[in-house]
Amino acid sequence: MKPDFDLSIILARIEQATKDFPKAAMFELAERGYNSLFEQLISCIISIRTFDETTIPVSLKLFKVARTPEALLQLSPQKLSELLYGSTYPEQKAYTMLGIAQTAIQKYNGELPADFDKLIEMKGVGPKCANLALGVATGLAAISVDIHVHRVVNRWGFIQANTPEKTLKLLEAKVPVNYWVDINRLLMPFGKHICTGTLPKCSTCPVLQFCEQVGVTTHR
């Protein structure tokens, strides 16, 4: 990590640099009014191994039919799978969502708990989705690490970890709590459009001065 590394400056510059790019899917859906914890968690399940360009329309299609656990349980696995068409593994995701909806009703009176440990107890809900849903829907301080966040912070030299799970733990230890939700909100579009996996746009990057360019061999 470079001596002048300043996360507050970095995030401010990234916010300005990414303002014209599409928002990360969960944040875009929240702005459209789909901001309950249940809706955010369901959308995050849809997003697994699926591009945002698909996640958003598939989520919107589903929410026209079902926005609550009760409404979701009115759908058969087959019908739900059809609504999820376009995302990866729609059949598997359908059963995951039905399980979440059933747990919400049977254990929590239809309202998912704003509790990380209780969310990841549900089959198919991992740390990334639990934290992202909590951060967006409830404002609870939570860091969500996807492939973009993992790549960017390790490329900076800010974190040294070989898996997103390890990156998450290190970020939680190093990043001030007031920046936790912004980590995914800002680094996802930054990693998708500027600090890309191959040929990152280093020559025009707003935070190049802070970056160690770890692993970068060629760039634009």
Results as ranks from 00 to 15, higher is better:
K61S: 13
Q74G: 10
L60Y: 01
L98T: 04
T68M: 10
L98G: 02
I46L: 15
L62Q: 05
S47Q: 12
L83V: 10
M97W: 11
T103G: 01
K64H: 08
F63W: 11
L84T: 05
S87F: 00
V65R: 15
A101Y: 01
S47N: 10
L60G: 09
Q78Y: 10
Q92C: 00
L75P: 05
Q102I: 03
K93R: 11
S47D: 12
P77I: 04
T103E: 10
L72T: 04
A101W: 00
L84P: 07
I48N: 15
I56L: 07
V65D: 10
T50M: 12
E70L: 08
S59W: 00
T50G: 13
K61P: 09
S81Y: 03
A104Y: 04
A101L: 11
I100K: 05
Y89W: 13
T68I: 06
S59H: 06
P77T: 05
A94T: 03
P77G: 05
Q74P: 00
A66Q: 04
Q106S: 14
S59R: 13
L98M: 14
L83R: 02
T55R: 08
E91F: 05
R49W: 14
E82N: 11
V65Y: 10
Q78V: 03
T68A: 08
S81C: 06
F51T: 15
P90W: 01
S81D: 03
I46F: 11
Q106W: 01
Q102N: 11
T88M: 11
I48S: 15
A71C: 00
K64Q: 15
V58P: 04
D52W: 09
